[in-house]
């Protein structure tokens, strides 16, 4: 099992948790759970997500 990575919001000094974030691209909006600061709402998106699912969705919307 992969170790759960701990991440801290540098402004609020609290641990980031999984929360929904709204994304939009080419006029379409959708929600996805990513790490967010429970205090200020700052978002963290990993390179893995950007290169994987996110780029797939971008490609899908461009070719739709």
């Amino acid at each position: 099992m992969e170790k759960k990575q701990k991440l801290i919001c540098d402004r609020c000094k609290v641990e980031m948790v999984d929360k929904e974030v709204q994304f939009s691209y080419l006029g379409k909006s959708f929600r996805h759970k990513v790490k967010r600061c429970p205090e200020c709402g700052q978002v963290y998106i990993s390179e893995e997500l950007v290169k994987g699912r996110m780029s797939q969705v971008e490609k899908m919307l461009e070719d739709k």
């Binding site: 700052q42 998106i45 290169k51 996110m54």
Partner: peptide
Amino acid sequence: VNVYSHRMKIELEAVWNGKKTEA
């Protein structure tokens, strides 16, 4: 140590739990 980019826009970060944050 790393850079990456995406085209999708992150929405509504400016408003969090009903209050405006500095985003």
